[in-house]
Amino acid sequence: MAASSIAPEPSWSLRDRLGEVLHHLRMSGMFYCRSELSEPWGIDLPPLTGCLMFHVVTSGHCWLEINGFAPCLLQPGEFALVPHGHGHRIMSELGAPLAKLFDLDREEVSDCYELLRHGGGGTPATMVCGAVRFEHPAAQRLVRLLPSLLHVQAWNTIEEDWVRSTLSLMAAEAKHLRPGGEAVITRLSDILVIQTLRWWLAHHGSTQEGWLGALQDDRIGQAMTLIHRDPECGWNVASLAAAVAMSRSAFAAQFTQLVGESPMRYVTRWRMQLAWSWLREDKQTSIGDLAARLGYQSEAAFSRAFQRYMGVAPGAARKLQEETSA
């Protein structure tokens, strides 16, 4: 691919660069479930590879237990996120008998929304739980940095009122499921997942190294954002260095040190990750059109790069994804 002459971009603030990442937090819901539970009860949730699983208690309480962590008590107004799809357990009390999630009877309300009723007839509790997936590589990169469990007990002051209002609305919809209620609950759930990630970035993002730390560097972060915004551009080390007003050698060394790989390897990896997500999302677009969207002058050049980085040809990857989602 030919190199491009790029005029230096205006300096972006850290807020702009993190905003670029948050912009890509568009998710696809795997399933959402409203649960009506009564003590004693316990549910064993299996691992769900590539998914983020969340739990909101709308009345009562529950314990959440994940291997390697102390059990945590969830109360109304709190939000728990298990970002890496690890198997875990929710229960009315520690040591309660457990039933496997997919062994329980569930009422299907829509393609991805279910009602579950379970328990021994004692003190009731209600919850909204779900599993979502992020397809965009920026979002996936962010998720990989998260701890195995996020438990938000107190929101920022500026957010607390509307988050609690959102949780109250979710609780009302879960209690009296009206027409369209499942759509309201799923959208509110998605908002709370994204808000939880924003909460984590605000409290812990500045302490991160690696990819997120590099994104927060004034010049390397700008270069990464250029790559994210315009993956089809004919980037090379010289054009990226010029865009952030650095010498070629200093830029290449600092980028590699902070990101953990060379600038051009990052460019190629980013394009291949985008291609992978596009193959999943856009089944009508030809491989040649995908290659053009990523700046490759031929389908053959794109296919070689894709197979080198992903270990499978684009056409085979699309077929594999179709079989997996069937």
Rank of each mutant, 00 (worst) to 15 (best):
L73F: 12
G120W: 02
R34D: 10
D105P: 14
P124F: 03
T268N: 13
V312S: 01
N67M: 06
P40Q: 11
G295T: 03
H23V: 02
L274E: 02
H151N: 07
A300F: 10
S59C: 12
L64V: 13
H136K: 02
L215D: 01
R117P: 00
L169N: 13
H23A: 14
I220A: 00
C129N: 14
D217W: 05
T186P: 00
P10V: 07
M30G: 15
L48W: 08
L116H: 04
E299C: 07
A223K: 00
M91G: 02
M310K: 12
A305N: 05
G29W: 04
A301Q: 10
Q254H: 07
S262I: 02
G130H: 04
H86C: 12
R219D: 11
N67G: 12
A291V: 03
G205N: 01
G120E: 06
L294S: 01
V312R: 10
L74A: 05
R265M: 09
I227D: 04
Y309D: 10
A99C: 10
A80N: 04
C72S: 12
L201N: 04
V259F: 00
H151W: 08
F69K: 13
C233K: 11
L167A: 09
T49A: 15
G315K: 09
A253I: 10
H61N: 12
M127D: 04
S303I: 03
V184Y: 11
A317I: 06
E173C: 09
A2V: 10
V56D: 04
E108T: 15
C33R: 15
G288L: 04
P263C: 00
A3S: 15
P71I: 05
Q222R: 10
P83G: 03
R248W: 07
C72L: 14
V109C: 07
F134P: 01
Y309K: 08
S35W: 05
Q153Y: 03
T256F: 08
L169D: 11
L145A: 13
H24C: 10
E36P: 01
A292S: 13
G19F: 06
L258A: 04
R265S: 11
L45C: 13
V109G: 03
L177D: 01
S249E: 14
L192A: 03
D161Y: 12
P76Q: 02
A326C: 14
N67E: 15
A305V: 09
L98P: 00
Q307E: 13
D103S: 13
G205C: 03
T166N: 09
V184T: 11
P40R: 11
L150S: 01
H176F: 12
Q321C: 02
S4L: 14
S13P: 02
Q297N: 11
G315E: 14
P83I: 08
R133W: 09
P10F: 08
A70N: 10
A70P: 00
R15S: 14
R271G: 02
T58D: 05
F69W: 10
S11M: 14
E261R: 09
T256G: 09
I90S: 13
A96K: 07
L98H: 03
M1K: 09
V109L: 13
H176G: 08
P10G: 05
R271C: 00
C233F: 08
S13M: 05
L74E: 07
L167W: 04
A131I: 06
L37V: 00
G234I: 03
P124I: 01
L279C: 07
W199E: 10
H151F: 06
H86N: 14
M272P: 00
A7G: 07
R271L: 06
W278P: 01
T256L: 11
F134V: 10
A3T: 14
A245C: 14
L48E: 09
